[in-house]
């Protein structure tokens, strides 16, 4: 079983009130040196069957039409290799 990660971020020109709220909170909590924060969403999709081009195309389609609101958001689709998964688990 393969894992595909879809990251959804507000487009760079779009205001991100959540990210701004986080950024404003940082210095109050003593964390300095962060000039900007943008907050997004991460979807981890466990895919049944082989992860071929057709499957990836389907995922791109579902990301574009459902996971992301492409009027205001961008998304990236990436396949997470087994090694990366293990790495991330450390």
């Amino acid at each position: 079983m393969a894992r595909v990660v879809v990251d959804v971020m507000l487009k760079p020109e779009i205001l991100d009130p959540q990210g701004q709220a986080v950024q404003r909170a940082l210095p109050r909590l003593g964390f300095h040196g962060i000039s900007d924060v943008r907050q997004g969403k991460r979807f981890e999709l466990e895919v049944d069957g082989p992860l071929d081009e057709a499957a990836l195309a389907r995922i791109r389609d579902l990301a574009e039409s459902f996971l992301a609101n492409t009027v205001i958001e961008d998304f990236t689709v990436k396949v997470e290799e087994a090694a990366e998964v293990a790495e991330a688990a450390k």
Binding site: K11, L15, D16, P17, Q20, I72
Partner: peptide
């Protein structure tokens, strides 16, 4: 022709 729309922040 569809430019980015604006996102508002009501708390602001």
């Amino acid at each position: 022709k569809r430019p980015a729309v604006q996102v508002g922040d009501p708390f602001q």
